[in-house]
Design a protein around this nucleic acid. Structure first.
Length: 274
DNA sequence: AGCTGGTCCTGATGGC
DNA sequence: TGCCATCAGGACCAGC
């Protein structure tokens, strides 16, 4: 369930539930063959440690302890949920964080595209998955129209693929890419190199609004979304174009169009976007 | 059968 | 021709 709003929501929920009861008793790996093997020494490094902060970077969730930081990515179908000390596990529960206070936090991921890893405090910029990431769209001023314009020069890719590239800007996945470009009034198939400074500015503003709105709705606008209580969200109605092929544009009633580009379904309004 | 939120890797392509 | 950057597509999986 992983674009930025969903990951942000999960990080906030985990923070809220844990509060100060965040001392890890032990970490239990049930199935370690996720996208990459879970490092064998990971449980050892975190047992007995107190989680001091949980935060999001890109689509990763970082659990910080004094010496090490646990890193998780939800892939396409991952989720974290809390269960009580006596609750049963479900199929596809791969990792458990047992807290001293009794709760357990469970990593669940049917497709196993997710990832669990760790790094030493202070070495975030060295981690192979984190060092190449672009700016945060919501709290780094470096994500500006000017930045996007300069970065997109000579880039012979569609603007949609360009903003989904985590080296350009982090957090925008397939759904919110279509949604942001609708909001910016730009056709997703246009080439990145053809964007004007004004269009780049529009994309930045539209992407930020789209992500903020999605966070406000609890990030529940995704098919497999589950919050940390394990409840499903309502995947529907909030989108302007995503998954609405043939349905009337909410703004002008023109039927929404769709096409697979760069392997991903893409949606747009042929009248509102040019 | 053909979709589905992500992203890593490989081999192909194109420019200099 | 060779080197480099860039790009498209396949791969990873389960479930609906």
């Amino acid at each position: 369930m992983p674009e930025l709003p969903e990951v942000e929501t999960v990080a906030q929920e985990i923070n809220a539930v844990l509060k100060d009861n965040s001392v890890i008793d032990r970490i239990e790996i049930i199935r370690g063959d996720l996208r990459f093997p879970v490092p064998a020494r990971l449980p050892k490094y975190f047992s007995g440690q107190k989680i001091t902060q949980i935060r999001r970077r890109a689509k990763y969730i970082l659990f910080e302890t004094p010496k090490y930081v646990l890193l998780s990515h939800l892939g396409m179908s991952g989720s974290w949920r809390f269960i009580g000390s006596n609750e049963k596990l479900e199929k596809h529960d791969h990792c458990l964080i047992h807290f001293v206070a009794g709760k357990k936090l469970v990593f669940h991921d049917p497709r196993r595209f997710g990832l669990l890893d760790f790094f030493s405090v202070g070495s975030e910029q060295k981690h192979p998955r984190l060092k190449e990431l672009g700016p945060e769209p919501l709290f780094q001023e470096s994500f500006s129209g000017q930045y996007l314009y300069e970065k997109s020069r000579k880039r012979n890719v569609t603007i949609k693929a360009f903003i989904m590239d985590q080296k350009t800007v982090v957090g925008i996945g397939n759904i919110y890419a279509s949604e942001a470009l609708f909001r910016a009034g730009i056709l997703p198939l246009k080439l990145a190199a053809k964007m004007t400074p004004e269009q780049c500015h529009s994309i930045v503003v539209a992407a930020q609004k789209t992500l903020v709105d999605a966070i406000k709705s609890g990030g529940s606008s995704i098919r497999d979304y589950r919050n940390t209580s394990g409840e499903k969200g309502d995947f529907q109605s909030l989108h302007n174009v995503y998954d609405r092929t043939g349905l009337p544009c909410r703004r002008c009633k023109t039927p929404i169009r769709s096409k697979v580009i760069v392997g991903r379904s893409t949606y747009w309004c042929p009248k509102c976007q040019s």
